Simulated assay, not measured.
Amino acid sequence: MRAKLLFAVSAAAFLAACANMDIPGVRGMTDTGSAFDAALHQAYSDLAQAEYDEADWADARYFTNRAKTAAMGQDTGPQPLADRNLPQEGLAEISVARADLMAAFDAGGRDKAPEAAARAQAAFDCWMQELEENIQQEDIDNCRASFYQALALVQAELDQKPMAAAAPMMMPEPMKIYFAFDSAVLGDKAMPVIDGIVEAYEKYDPKMISLTAYADRAGDPMYNDILAKSRVDAVVKALRDHGVSPSRLAISISGEANVPVPTADGVAEKGNRVVTVKFEDGM
């Protein structure tokens, strides 16, 4: 009886969480606002679906409602910092980032670069949401990188000088492509990063794109070197398939040496199953 009661309570909670969360229906709403609002409508719909797929009902509902208001042309701007319980170590950077975003919007960024501006706002809210959870570093990094990339596009359209911390010498922030354990396959979360690299390549014409491949410290060091090489090879192939010249790609295989997240030998740290991407200015 107790088990049945618990199941009933859980089912009721699930149904309540899903109420008023018709993501496909909201995605299909007719846009009545600006081009920025229309792009934001779809960007928030994407975030809502991603959170729904992870069973994060509260944030799925939040982003669904944001998509709905954007479709109606009633967006209220990026989420206020006070709305989230953000960790102290990430608060300073994201505060400056929000100020930079609002400055770009106040300068006309929503009108001059509506799609990039919408991506920047949605990525900022994604960054805040993931930072509040503070349990998936890969997702934090992806949202953060997407924000800086989109903001740089807005600033470039406004002919503003990007903030040094966000895009030094007009180059986008470094990006990271994560992999599953013992895998060199580009997953679904990797492809938006690949798209971002290609967009930065086409927009900023970097002198060089430096790719450094790592592996976690579980397993044999020689095997991890081979695994790291397979990972960067997969990234290079994807970039070449998207039109990036191989002459612009500088490849480094680090394996389990000098990993981004220091660990003891034998530790399977997901933050080290990564290829880092840095852009070098051609000026």
Score class of each variant (00 low, 15 high):
K4P: 06
L6C: 15
A8D: 07
A8E: 07
A8Q: 06
A11G: 03
A11M: 06
L15K: 00
A17L: 06
M21V: 06
M21I: 06
D22V: 04
I23E: 11
P24W: 00
R27D: 13
G28D: 14
T30Q: 13
S34C: 14
A39K: 14
H41T: 14
A43W: 09
S45I: 11
S45F: 14
D46P: 11
A48I: 12
E51N: 12
W57C: 03
A58S: 09
Y62I: 12
F63T: 01
N65S: 03
N65Y: 10
A70P: 03
G73N: 02
G73V: 07
G77I: 03
Q79V: 00
Q79W: 08
R84Q: 06
L86D: 10
E89V: 08
S95F: 06
A99G: 02
L101S: 02
L101V: 03
L101C: 01
M102E: 09
D106P: 08
D106F: 07
G109N: 05
R110Y: 09
A116F: 12
A117I: 10
A118N: 08
R119A: 14
D125C: 01
Q129K: 14
E132L: 06
E133Q: 12
N134Q: 06
E138K: 05
D139Q: 15
D141Y: 08
C143G: 13
C143P: 09
A145G: 13
A150T: 10
V154A: 06
K161D: 12
A164Y: 06
A166L: 15
A167F: 12
M169K: 14
P172E: 04
P172C: 11
E173L: 15
P174K: 04
P174E: 05
M175V: 11
K176Q: 10
F179S: 02
D182A: 06
V185T: 15
K189Y: 11
M191N: 10
P192Y: 08
V193R: 08
D195K: 06
G196P: 08
E199A: 14
A200I: 09
E202H: 03
Y204N: 13
L211F: 03
T212K: 12
A213R: 02
R217H: 10
G219A: 11
Y223L: 15
D225M: 05
A228K: 05
K229M: 11
V232F: 02
V244S: 02
P246V: 03
R248M: 02
R248L: 05
R248K: 15
L249K: 03
A250V: 13
S254W: 09
A257K: 10
A257E: 13
P260D: 00
P260R: 00
P260C: 09
P262N: 09
D265P: 08
G266M: 01
E269P: 00
N272I: 00
V275R: 09
V277R: 00
V277C: 07
D281F: 03
D281C: 14
D281M: 05
